[in-house]
Simulated scan of single mutants.
Amino acid sequence: MSFTVRPGELFGFVGANGAGKTTTMRIVLGVLAADAGSVRLDGREIDAGRRRRIGYMPEERGLYPKMAVGEQLRYLAQLHGLSAADAKASTERWTERLGVADRVGDEVQKLSLGNQQRVQLAAALVHDPDVLVLDEPFSGLDPVAVDVMSEVLRERCDQGAPVVFSSHQLDLVERLCDRVGIVRDGTLVAEGAVEELRSAGNVVVVDAPQAPAGWADGVPGVASARPDGGRTQVTLEPGADDQPLLRAALATGPVHEFARRRSSLTELFREAVA
């Protein structure tokens, strides 16, 4: 497992349940010790002091359920080194920004799951971290809250912070992220800019109206072919040339369309983890 997140970059970390996303994040934070390798920030290995500059949002909420929201956020901010006055100001700013300012006196356990998630994000941001590492930050949020959290993450990136987050909401990852890493069995099996990954798909759509059933079977480089609403959707093997497929299609008669289809992140994910 090896990857780099640059300053001001939003990096989506995706994979099936149990693939190793949370374990990786816990190693970054020092909650778990790596068997080998290192975690570096600005080229220097991270120690306890530098980890204080990371904002972490665990998948399982790490909040004290019977503690009031405002008291809890001020406490966590001071643990990260803020003065009491700065902790109070930061708590007010982030609870207002995330739409829970009217709940600062409530115990966390009395909040809805969505509002608990907002408070958890406030806890990750309250000390103005240099790096954000967020595990399933959009889980349980309504569309309005998703928009607010998306804006906050993009703002942090615009201010130069590297942001890593995991999510099973692949449409959201595709829309938000600059780059994506797909994890399978503890290994990064695909990584790159979203547009690069989508453009690298090996699917070709062919509209050859006179082509008989199975016309693409046996063509060099073809992994599979299936009918798709009057067309044929052909998946090529990695690195395969599409010209033999074009010649085979032309041999059946006129070809009205022959085009590479950009794969969605969901399709790339299914292919990578299969």
Rank of each mutant, 00 (worst) to 15 (best):
L188D: 03
P227V: 04
A34E: 11
R198P: 09
V119D: 00
S263C: 11
F258Q: 03
R156M: 11
A87F: 03
V131N: 08
G230D: 08
N115G: 08
V104D: 04
D42Q: 09
S139W: 03
E271P: 06
G192Y: 04
G229W: 03
K110T: 15
H80I: 09
Q169N: 15
F11Q: 00
R50L: 12
E237A: 14
A225P: 02
S112P: 13
S150V: 11
S199K: 14
G12C: 02
P162C: 11
F138L: 12
V5F: 10
A68G: 08
V173Y: 03
L79C: 13
V131R: 00
S263H: 10
V5W: 03
T23G: 12
A200F: 10
L111C: 00
D242T: 03
D106M: 13
A48Q: 10
S224P: 00
F165H: 01
A208K: 07
Q72W: 11
Q116E: 06
V31H: 04
V234K: 08
A36I: 03
R118I: 09
E96T: 15
G43F: 10
G12N: 02
T95V: 06
S224F: 00
A123S: 09
N17T: 12
D142C: 12
L41I: 05
R156E: 14
E267W: 06
A77F: 07
R261D: 05
A19L: 02
R118V: 06
W215T: 08
P227S: 10
P220F: 12
V119R: 05
R231L: 02
D135Y: 09
S150M: 12
T4V: 14
D142P: 10
L265S: 02
D178R: 05
P212H: 08
C157Q: 03
E196Y: 08
D130S: 14
G12T: 00
V119G: 02
L153P: 14
R262E: 15
I46R: 00
G201I: 05
G114N: 11
I182Y: 03
T266K: 11
D86Q: 08
P244H: 08
E92D: 15
R53T: 11
M25Y: 11
G105C: 08
G214Y: 06
D241G: 01
G30D: 10
D217W: 00
R6H: 14
V163Q: 01
F165A: 03
L98V: 09
R44A: 12
D35R: 11
G218H: 09
V222R: 02
G186M: 14
E271H: 12
L29C: 02
G114V: 08
A248M: 06
L98E: 12
R156L: 01
V183T: 11
Q169W: 07
A274L: 06
Q120D: 04
V205D: 15
D128C: 01
A193K: 13
D171E: 10
E191W: 01
R74D: 01
E257R: 13
Q233T: 12
E151T: 15
F138I: 02
P162E: 05
F269P: 13
